[in-house]
Amino acid sequence: MKERPIGPKIFSLNRYLKDRVGETWMIIAFVMVLLLPFIVGAGLYLKSRILLQEHSIWTLLVSGNWNPQKGEFGLAPFIVSSLWVTALAVLIAVPVSLLSAIHLTQYARKWFLNAMHPVIDILAGLPSVIYGVWGVLVVVPFVKRLAEWFDISVSGYSILAGAIVLAIMIIPFILNILIEVFRTIPEELTEASLSLGATHWQTIKRVLLRKAVTGIISAVVLGVSRAFGETIAVLMVVGNVVHIPKGAFQPGYPLPALIANNYGEMLSIPRYEAALMLSALVLFSVVLLFNFASRIAIVQFEKRV
């Protein structure tokens, strides 16, 4: 009878409880993660609702008049700036990353690829303010010179400067994904294509890039999401002038910069806070919709390749 003390029973009850508690917490955590986007979205909506009751959302989005003192809150200058900076940044970053990834995985020696990994990780981990400072010191003067070359006289603080800094910031992230994408394509696929008489380059163009298409979409989506929301580094070089930019050498004022520069100040102006919350909501919705659309695209492509 000594072998059956009540100890184990208590112990197992204890374990059972821990198990249940653990499970409950996991479910709560899981639901929180699921709900988080909705909570954030709903919060932003509630805060900007006053403004939306007075003006139609459409007017606010397309109007270029931003005069908080007069109660005019057209967000178009900021939306257009954001689109400009993001599009240009992605346009620079994606080809560079794609070519680098192809080179590193298809042509370079293994040790070189292995040596690049920590470098890419370090670049990805640098605080964005460092990119901003570097942008002010290097990219802004570079853009100024470049513009002079086209006989345009500008300060250099511009959409293009923002885009270049952003591109450099997102390249490590895009590159990391793309390297993984190309590395996980089975070698046998390359061999199959070569055995049919294709050259290495034909194999890359016609087989590997197709196989990689969903991975490339994911990489671009990550790049766009990061670029669209990046704040500090862009704000330091983009000029922050409220107008609808008409060219890459002109200054711009992207949405994140608007919020970061003004939140907490001038909140005494009526509706000002609501307007900033609305711009946050726009930022949030664009990233969300973009991710959603890309998931659909990826599912479609996965069926095909």
Partner: peptide
């Protein structure tokens, strides 16, 4: 080299259809 490879058809351990 590409002509040489074309003189041999290759079947691997698992099928690897081209993504098309």
């Amino acid at each position: 080299i590409h002509d040489i490879r074309k003189r041999m058809g290759l079947l691997s351990q698992r099928p690897y259809p081209l993504p098309m």
